[in-house]
């Protein structure tokens, strides 16, 4: 069995208010400790904002700037430029946003920052909906998933943000999962060493939002990766695709069955998702082959 080998340097504190078992907090722990002390985070409204803050307390031991929902990437750009102006060239600026602040409301700012190739590391904690405000759908919510605003299941597919970002030809884009901690840490480490715009999208199974058991978010994320629903890969310069796992080894049912947001699904509904995943997987492999 593969051992996890990242080092915890105490950059994330106990006592934060994430739900018990939340893998967004877990991912934050891995990312903060991998990036290290010389960093500033910019956080738009999101679960992360709540987890980091709660005035007068803070759970993170680096400075965090809370900004508005639509301006995460823009604020991060400004913070980075201000640091540069002060001669702090090596300080990593992290923008940590949810999928609402990335796929939907923050997309304009993100696209602009990507187009300018700002030197920031943008982390999207993708829990596929507005889970902090009661679980409404976002454009990241996948096909057939039930949310507060799509109680019968969403009838359109998840927006493919990777392809949007790839079209900007930024230096580094990656997907990551809290089930694959070594991979997540390695990607953060790699991104830290790249100048320019870096985006890492982390799959975050949301306990209340997805209807996942308190102890099962890591397992759910693992099933997401192994079933090919959420493949782990990297895109460099928008064109070079690299897979980080050995292929998909499970049917999507192994992933869906752990989540109440899919419990209304009939066999046909599962088959539709399987078919979508198979086609996306094939398309991804074609890109890997070309790269």
């Amino acid at each position: 069995m593969e051992m996890i080998d990242y080092q915890d340097d105490g950059l994330f504190n106990s006592g934060h208010v994430a739900c018990g078992g939340c893998v967004e907090a877990l991912s934050l722990r891995v990312i903060l400790n991998t990036v290290g002390k010389d960093a500033v985070a910019v956080v738009p409204p999101s679960c992360t904002a709540v987890i980091c803050g709660g005035y007068p307390m803070s759970s993170v031991n680096i400075p965090v700037f809370h900004t508005t929902l639509e301006s995460g990437a823009a604020s991060a750009s400004g913070v980075k430029r201000a640091l540069m102006a002060k001669g702090k060239h090596d300080t990593t600026v992290l923008c940590i946003a949810g999928d609402g602040g990335t796929y939907d409301i923050g997309l304009q700012a993100l696209s602009s920052a990507a187009e300018r190739n700002e030197d920031i590391l943008y982390i999207c904690f993708d829990n596929e909906g507005y889970m902090n405000t009661g679980g409404q759908k976002s454009s990241s919510t996948p096909l057939n998933a039930a949310t507060g605003s799509t109680p019968g299941g969403k009838d359109t597919r998840k927006k493919n943000l990777i392809e949007i970002l790839a079209a900007h030809r930024i230096p580094y884009i990656a997907t990551a999962s809290p089930s694959h901690v070594n991979d997540l840490a390695a990607k953060v480490e790699k991104a830290k060493g790249i100048r320019g715009m870096k985006v890492i999208i982390v799959l975050i199974p949301c306990l209340p939002g997805w209807g996942v058991a308190d102890n099962a978010a890591v397992k759910t994320a693992r099933m997401g990766v192994e079933s090919g629903v959420f493949p782990l890969f990297e895109v460099e310069d928008g064109v070079t695709y690299t897979m980080n796992t050995d292929g998909k080894s499970r049917p999507v049912g192994d992933y869906l069955s752990l989540q109440k947001r899919y419990r209304h699904l009939t066999d046909d509904g599962v088959a539709a998702i399987q078919s979508e995943v198979d086609q996306d997987w094939q398309r991804l492999q074609q890109r890997v082959a070309v790269g």
Binding site: N13, G15, P56, M57, S58, S59
Partner: peptide, 8 residues
């Protein structure tokens, strides 16, 4: 903020 969350 000026207090670590670990007081909670």
């Amino acid at each position: 903020t000026h207090t670590p969350s670990s007081v909670r």
